[in-house]
Design a binder for these strands. Structure first.
Length: 576
DNA sequence: GCCGTTTTCGGCCCGACTGTTTTCAGTCG
């Protein structure tokens, strides 16, 4: 997949454009940055999009116009981008790595290049170590130290964290700040609040009149490895887990405005602020202000959106995917909430690769309020994961029946995560499949096969009539493994024809389907979904909240997710 | 370079923090 490569090239072009001394090209710079962001965060391979829809497909992407589309097409067709190559001849520098260093932008990078010949991380490091940098005009001993810290940070840098790591860390920090006694309220903002699958930094907002004490407290928390910036109302610290955390202190009358400002992604915010300007207002993180600078709103987000003639929406929607327009029409859907989840249909036990017993998993599910749980261990092709054959499944199901007879207050369903074999067949015999309450199908093996073959393989499995839910449909592992090469549109179409439910696997490194594809499957194919925890231990049953976050990011209502149904309705669906 | 319920031209968010500056440029989000 070339998305990342193309995004990096566009990002570097933006850096190099910043160096133009003859005229201010900063809007052009922003255009390239936006295009880079769009392409870098796409879930579909841009090459596929281009094959399918040609230039028109690229032009439909936000922030891509004729100019940038031309460069992208040139790269897709010929493997090179002349605009990039031309710039690179003038500036033979590794902007990509260097600009990762905190405090280094295009201009300072170029200055270091011209005066000291710094081209990449290693030459920068050498210059720092020889104390050459402190001699430069505009730099000093402190900048040199800062750069050294920046280099170390990048070298040990882990980049973005999975939501499943970042969110619990944020919750720990928030509860510590709350318990400090220095604050009236603490709120999470940023991409973690939007439940984005990966998080680059944490944004925390605090209401307090002891600003300085709060800043000191944050700096000295156990989770912190170093202070990056510290001012009277804002402190940035590097956390030991490898991402930074911004803590801002705001006044009570501004908290709504601050939340509005720091929760939405950039594009969402720009649009909302443009609406404010059209109405003759000004919106910033301190409030919504009228023409004479009078504060009109700011205490709550709802108040701000309402004064703008908009309907407030959950944080997960604020990605500028059409929600601003919908909000102006007061047509924001009522999204699914965690409390709507009545059951879990994807759970493993120690009969395959889980670590807890059937009984423990059932009891834990009951204790967190589930009305039903589906036990879905692996089938035999997954031998590394302790997958079972038909004989073992017969015994396994007997045991589930026996245990569930003993336990009240929760309905236990028999299922399996059945391998969809290379030829599209299923990994278990019909009589085993018939004994299940419902069936998950999944691709685990031969994941590198060609697109057409893979697509046919999955569709054939659907047509057997024994796949109720397609588990982790694309098989991706975030930051680790690309999705399988499959024609998702054909798969979704076939799912619609065969009544197959798409899973949102809640495991933090899967979140599969991802948010964009959830939205696509809902909008274009009207499919139903199941949010499964894919828990391999008791504690992991709680992962379902990440799946719910992804569902909300895909704009799902509770009636579109089958495990919000009560058991009778669900069983009718599976029998039907 | 992108974009269109003020538009095919003329806008495009703006405040906080830092270091080295003696009044602000660069960077960040």
């Amino acid at each position: 997949m070339d998305n990342k490569k193309i995004a990096e090239m566009l990002e570097e072009i933006a850096e190099m454009l910043e160096l133009d001394e003859e005229k201010d090209r900063h809007f052009e710079v922003r255009a390239y940055r936006k295009a880079a962001l769009t392409i870098g965060s796409m879930q579909e391979d841009i090459r596929d999009l281009y094959k399918r829809k040609g230039e028109r497909g690229l032009l439909e992407l936000p922030g891509i116009g004729k100019g940038i589309a031309g460069s992208v097409i040139e790269f897709l067709e010929n493997g090179r981008m002349s605009k990039y190559d031309d710039f690179k001849k003038r500036y033979p520098l590794d902007f990509k790595d260097l600009s990762n260093i905190q405090g280094l932008g295009a201009k300072r990078i170029y200055k270091l290049y011209r005066s000291l010949g710094v081209k990449d991380l290693s030459t920068l490091k050498a210059a720092v170590e020889k104390h050459e940098i402190r001699e430069l005009e505009g730099f000093g001993a402190r900048s040199e130290e800062e750069l050294l810290r920046g280099i170390k940070r990048v070298e040990s840098g882990k980049g973005r964290l999975l939501l499943g790591s970042a969110l619990p860390e944020a919750e720990t920090i928030i509860s510590k700040i709350k318990r400090s006694g220095l604050v009236d309220a603490v709120e999470l903002a940023g991409s973690a609040r939007r439940m984005k699958e990966t998080v680059g930094d944490l944004d925390i907002l605090v209401i307090s009149n002891k600003s300085k004490e709060v800043m000191d407290f944050v700096e000295n928390m156990d989770e912190v490895s170093e202070t990056v910036v510290k001012g009277p109302t804002k402190t940035t610290v590097m956390l030991k887990i490898g991402i930074t955390c911004d803590v801002r202190v705001v006044k009570k009358e501004s908290i709504g405005a601050a939340l509005q400002y720091f929760i939405g992604n950039k594009d969402h915010n720009v649009k909302v602020r443009q609406i404010a300007i059209r109405k003759g207002y000004k919106l910033n993180e301190y409030g919504l202000f009228g023409s004479r600078g009078k504060r009109i709103a700011g205490r709550s987000e709802k108040e701000i959106y309402e004064k703008l003639g908009m309907q407030i929406m959950d944080p997960e929607m604020r990605e500028d995917r059409g929600e601003v327009e919908l909000s102006l029409e007061h047509k924001i859907p009522k999204l699914i909430q965690l409390e709507d989840m009545h059951g879990d249909l994807h759970v493993h036990t120690n009969h395959s690769d889980g670590s807890d017993t059937i009984e423990d998993m059932i009891l834990e599910a009951r204790s967190i309020g589930r009305e039903y749980i589906g036990i879905s261990d692996h089938s035999k092709s997954e031998y590394v994961a302790g997958g079972m054959d038909d004989k073992k499944f017969a015994k396994h199901f007997d045991e589930i029946d026996k245990i569930s007879d003993k336990i009240d207050g929760i309905k236990v369903l028999k299922s399996a995560e059945i391998d969809i074999l290379k030829d599209g067949g299923l990994d278990l015999q019909r009589k085993t499949l018939e004994r299940m309450d419902y069936r998950l199908g999944a691709v685990h093996t031969n994941t590198k096969m060609g697109k057409d073959e893979m697509t046919k393989r999955i569709i054939k499995a659907f047509e057997s009539g024994y796949v109720d839910i397609l588990a982790h449909p694309t098989g991706r592992l975030i930051q680790k493994r690309d999705p399988i090469d499959v024609d998702l549109d054909r798969v979704l179409e076939a799912a619609k024809d065969n009544g197959v439910i798409m899973e949102i696997d809640s495991f933090p490194e899967r979140l599969d389907l991802g948010d964009e594809n959830v939205l696509k499957a809902k909008r274009e194919y009207g499919l139903k979904f199941s949010i499964g925890s894919d828990a391999h231990s008791k504690a992991q049953l709680g992962f379902i909240r990440y799946g719910v976050g992804t569902a909300k990011r895909g704009w799902l209502r509770s009636d579109e997710v089958v495990n919000t149904y009560h058991i009778a309705k669900l069983m009718k669906l599976f029998k039907g």
